[in-house]
Amino acid sequence: MNTDTATELAVDCRGIEKSFGEGETRVQVLRGTDFDARLGQMTFLVGPSGCGKTTLISVIGAILSCEAGEVHVLGSDLRRMKKGALADFRLANFGFIFQEYNLLPALTAAENASIPLVARGESNRDAERSAEELLGKLGLEGHTAKMPAQLSGGQQQRVAIARALIHEPRLLICDEPTASLDAASGHNVMELLRDVALAAERAVLVVTHDHRIFEFADRIHHMSDGVIESTDEHPNEEQDG
């Protein structure tokens, strides 16, 4: 849905090093990884299990720190920011969609979706009203007062999407958003993300194994053993032609 020419970068990472554990059990996961994602695009990150995809987007999402390299996201140098500032930055700019939806089971759909707004200091009532509106757009009208346990997996996923999008984040980070959905639902979710989350000043990052949704990608980074091996700049044009 976008051309690649001269588009500004939403994410620009250079030479990221990240390891877990120490001594004998130390695993080097990211080995000088470079990664970028452009505004107005849906960027996919694919690769075999254990290659470091989740680790990489965790670093980009400012919930994991790295040992070396540069992490520039939406024009900010994350490595220079303190813990509290990073939390504020996440709240202001990021939306996360986890494979496990991580909804709060004691809260209704609307309350769950409203959390980022409440965390930003909006009143419960205003936040919930916005959440109900967005849930309506996502096809959950009439389900906003239900508890997560009363919703189907796909419905829960949409509540999680609403929570990720309610504060209109500039960068949406999704880890396997369609892994637990059937083909049709997965397709729906991706269409939703494309329609709601994508705009000229915004970007979407998707980690996935799911070939059925590759058609939504503007760019695909292929990762292997901690580094980006290749990038498909026009995945769908190539497929089509």
Binding site: A87, D88, F89, A92, F98, I115, A119
Partner: peptide
């Protein structure tokens, strides 16, 4: 704890 982790990831500060 997982819910707290989710809130943290969303950007809720430790103090809150």
């Amino acid at each position: 704890l997982r819910q707290y982790a989710a809130l943290k990831a969303i950007g809720v500060r430790n103090l809150r």
